[in-house]
Simulated assay, not measured.
Amino acid sequence: MAQIEDLITSEDHLRRGFADAVLATALRLAVDENCGTRFLTADAADWPRHWYERRGFSVIGHSHCFERG
């Protein structure tokens, strides 16, 4: 199983394909290590979720976080 975390591109480097390259590398490494399940978390209300969907990811669950003040 492989979890992909913290894929962030600085604003100076947006729209140059860097995130695609990093994600593709992470997925290739996971396949090379026989990780049949590859997942990440994304905010349902934020635009990266759609970017991940265009790269083949789909929603399989939801999580919630609560904090008591």
Rank of each mutant, 00 (worst) to 15 (best):
F18D: 14
T9W: 01
A45S: 02
E33K: 10
D12P: 03
T25L: 06
S10R: 11
A30T: 12
V31G: 12
L40Q: 04
R38I: 11
W47K: 07
W47C: 05
I4L: 05
D12V: 02
H13P: 03
R38D: 00
F18P: 10
R28V: 08
A2F: 11
M1G: 13
H62V: 06
A45D: 02
H50V: 15
G36D: 01
R15F: 07
E11Q: 14
H64Y: 07
D32T: 03
H50P: 11
I60V: 09
L7K: 10
L14I: 15
V31R: 15
R38L: 04
L40K: 02
L23H: 02
P48R: 09
T25V: 00
E11R: 10
C65G: 13
A21T: 14
F66L: 11
T25N: 06
A26D: 01
E11F: 09
L29V: 15
G36P: 01
F66Y: 09
E53C: 03
R55W: 10
E5C: 07
D6G: 06
R49H: 09
F57Q: 01
S10Y: 05
N34S: 05
T41I: 11
R16M: 14
E67N: 08
A2T: 13
A44T: 14
D12M: 10
D46T: 07
D12Y: 03
A26Y: 02
R49A: 12
Y52F: 02
F66W: 06
H13I: 06
A19Q: 05
S58N: 04
N34V: 05
E67K: 11
T37P: 00
S63P: 01
R49E: 09
S10W: 06
T37G: 03
R55Y: 13
W51L: 02
L29I: 15
N34A: 09
T37E: 08
T25H: 08
R49L: 15
H50A: 15
